[in-house]
Amino acid sequence: MVDYLWNTQSPLQKALVPGCHGATGAHPGVTLREVRDIVLVQVMARRGKAAETAKAAKKLFGVEAPATPKAVIGKTATLVWSGPDQFTVIAPRTDEASQLAAMAQAFTGSASLSDQSDGRCLIRVSGARARDAIAKFSSLDLHDSVFPVGTAANTSVDHTAVNFWREANGTDGHPVYNMLVFTSFSDSLWHTIVDSSLEYGVEASSAKAA
C-alpha cells in the first residue's frame, strides 16, 4: 500500500522569494511577510440573531466582536469586521479540528460559519514606506487620523476584494497593515505589492502565524 502524503503548499510558493529586493539601502522601506498556517472563519449572524452572535463571540473570545470596520484582538483570535453583521475570526492554526469545533458549538443557532482558512492568504505589509507602497495599489486613505491602529476596511485591489486592517506599530515604530487576499489572486497581488515596493527596497519572508 502506498503512503499518501498530503504536503501543503502556500499560494505564494513561487511568487515569494525570501530576501531583499529592489533599491538597496540601510533599511528596506517595506517589509512583506506571508503569515502562514492560520485558521480563518467567516461568522455571519443569522436573521435577527445579531445580538446572540455578539454574545457568543464575547463568551468565546472575551471581547466584543466589531460592529463597525475595526479589528479587535481577543483571547485566542483576532476578530476583523468583514461586513454588516459579520466578522472574520483569524487565529494561528494549532489544533484545527478542535478550533473549528469550538466555534461551531459556540455559534450554534446564532450564526453561520464558513471556513475560509484556505480561501485567503494573509500578507503583512510594514515599514517606513509601507504607506507609500500601499498608496500605489489601494485607494484607502491610511493617514493616522483616518486609519489608526485597529481600523479595518474591506476594499478592492486590482479589482479584487481585500480585507485590510492595521495592527499595533512595529518595534521600529512604523505602521503594520494586514491584507487578507483571495488565495487564487495572491500570486498576482504579491507581484503588485512587490512591484509597488521596489523603489523603497523590500524584504520578503514568510512565517507561521503566532
Binding site: Q42, S112, S114, Q116
Partner: peptide, 14 residues
C-alpha cells in the same frame, strides 16, 4: 430580506 440565508464565496477555499 425575510429569509434567513447567509452567503459566502468559497471559490478559493477548495
Amino acid at each position: 430580506p425575510e429569509l434567513d440565508v447567509q452567503l459566502s464565496s468559497a471559490s478559493d477555499q477548495w
